[in-house]
């Protein structure tokens, strides 16, 4: 390779100058106060029940499994589901806010805490973690989307690499649509490293428009819906 770090820095600097100069020449003198008004579509207001029904129906259309449960029952629901899937291991986040759920899980389940850096543990994450449990920040009714807000305790790959993903969703944190959610929580002020909207298990229709689930991410998304 002939380039050096200094070269690409120079290339980029020159390119930046040229591109911006060209673009600026075209917009000089533009009056941004005179832009036409952007009118959004007025969606009808829905009740809590209607939003919940819409949320569940969209998720199920996308092959997610939605289980209505309570915080008290959650451990037994997860234990049963794991048993039915023939899975004996569960990966979960460190300092899990649902620690009482974890504590109440079937004692036969091999609990794995995500207390390691991914750097030297990729093989382990990919090959030895068949299922994971994560929390969620909130959700969106219109599209059946669950908002994951990964952090130090629940890393990004927790909800991505294990083939089965259990996610706890609080019905009290349901928003009508993405627009109202961003507005209500003022997301523009502070976004974390990564936010993901998840609306079903991983899928693809890349071969002859035939839907297949479990393309790269989780093959199963099991939603544990509480506080209904």
């Amino acid at each position: 390779m002939t380039n050096t770090k200094a070269d690409i820095k120079a290339v980029s600097k020159t390119a930046r100058g040229n591109i911006l100069a060209k673009l600026k020449a075209e917009v000089s003198g533009a009056d941004y106060d005179k832009l036409p008004e952007e009118v959004p579509f007025n969606y009808p207001e829905f009740s809590r029940e209607e939003n919940l029904a819409q949320f569940i129906s969209e998720l199920e259309k996308n092959h997610a499994q939605v289980i209505k449960t309570t915080k008290a029952n959650m451990a037994s629901v997860i234990s049963e589901q794991l048993k039915a899937l023939n899975i004996t291991k569960l990966l979960y986040g460190e300092n899990d806010e649902h620690s009482e759920v974890i504590a109440a899980l079937d004692s036969k389940i091999d609990l794995q805490t995500y207390d390691f850096s991914i750097d030297n543990n990729k093989e382990r994450l990919f090959n030895e973690c068949p299922a994971a449990l994560s929390s969620s920040r909130c959700s969106i009714a219109a599209t059946g989307s669950i908002v994951l807000w990964p952090d130090e305790n629940e890393p990004r790959s927790l909800s991505l690499v294990p083939p089965v993903h259990f996610v706890i969703v609080d019905a009290n944190e349901l928003y009508a649509d993405f627009t109202s959610l961003i507005k209500a929580q003022q997301w523009q002020d502070k976004l974390p490293t990564n936010v993901v909207l998840v609306s079903g298990p991983s899928k693809t229709a890349d071969i002859q428009q035939t839907l297949a689930y479990g393309a790269h991410g989780p093959k199963a998304l099991i939603v544990l819906l509480i506080n209904i």
Binding site: E58, N62, Y114, F116, S117, I118, A142, T143, G144, S145, D151, E152, P155, R156, S157, L191, P192, T193, N194, V195, V196, L197, V198, S199, G200, P201, S202, K203, G217
Partner: peptide, 21 residues
């Protein structure tokens, strides 16, 4: 589709203390 399965929003590289990314 009403939305894609994943909508991924990336605002930073791995921060100190984060375990992946």
């Amino acid at each position: 589709q009403a939305i894609s399965t994943y909508f991924n929003m990336i605002s930073s590289a791995r921060k100190p203390g984060e375990k992946d990314g």
